[in-house]
């Protein structure tokens, strides 16, 4: 089967599942859950860096979705609708707990939070040596505001205008936070590599 046909078949099965879920079909709910659970859970896990919290948020996101599924009319892609809802659930939860979603003003960043200046010649290129485990750990070590924007843009693929709308910041702030997040990740990854190399 070609990719285009596979995509079409997935879309149809998802559309069918949505219609059946609207009628209260348990299998349809489960099919929709299985189609999207990994992406929603991964997003929640990386945003909270806590398995139990991520599972609670995943559950909450899907419950909100299923409660509102009768109102879904297909104007937007179902996945877009679901992931927006997941992001909103996570953001609401983070705000409830008083965790920073995004820095209000770039000038409020402390020296500690801001990515350090390049060290120059002693740095070797990271390209090609970034593995998944290292990157996961480095993302978890990011300040929450940086982490949020990085996850939404680089992992989830949202555009800056969408992020700005979701988290309530300007497009410029989103771009700036993303750049700082990447710079901070580069610094963490390089430090981690240097520490590994220094070990006997």
């Amino acid at each position: 089967m070609t990719d285009a046909k596979k995509q079409q078949s997935n879309k149809l099965s998802e559309a069918e599942a949505i219609e059946r879920a609207k009628l209260g079909d348990a299998e349809a709910f489960e099919a929709l859950y299985n189609l999207h659970k990994r992406r929603v859970y991964s997003l929640c896990l990386r945003m909270t860096a806590n398995t139990a919290a991520a599972e609670d948020l995943t559950q909450e996101a899907f419950l909100q979705l299923f409660r509102k599924i009768g109102t879904f009319r297909g104007e937007s892609a179902f996945s877009t609708w679901l992931h927006r809802m997941s992001v909103n659930v996570v953001l609401m939860q983070l705000r409830k707990k008083g965790l920073p979603v995004v820095s209000l003003e770039e000038t409020m960043e402390t020296e500690e939070d801001a990515p350090r200046k390049e060290l120059g010649a002693e740095d070797a290129r990271l390209a090609g040596s970034v593995d998944r485990m290292q990157l996961q750990r480095s993302i978890a070590a990011l300040p929450p505001g940086y982490r949020m924007i990085f996850l939404l843009h680089d992992v989830e693929g949202y555009e800056h205008n969408e992020i700005a709308e979701m988290v309530g910041c300007s497009i410029g702030n989103s771009k700036s936070q993303l750049h700082k997040a990447r710079m901070k990740l580069r610094e963490i990854l390089k430090t981690s590599r240097a520490e590994k190399a220094a070990k006997p």
Binding site: T58, L126, L135
Partner: peptide, 18 residues
């Protein structure tokens, strides 16, 4: 480096199983 980080990050989407 920044491009490598960005590209590798995309592979993390949906990589965890609840």
């Amino acid at each position: 480096d920044l491009n490598a980080i960005s590209q590798q990050a995309r592979l993390l989407q949906g990589s965890e199983e609840p």
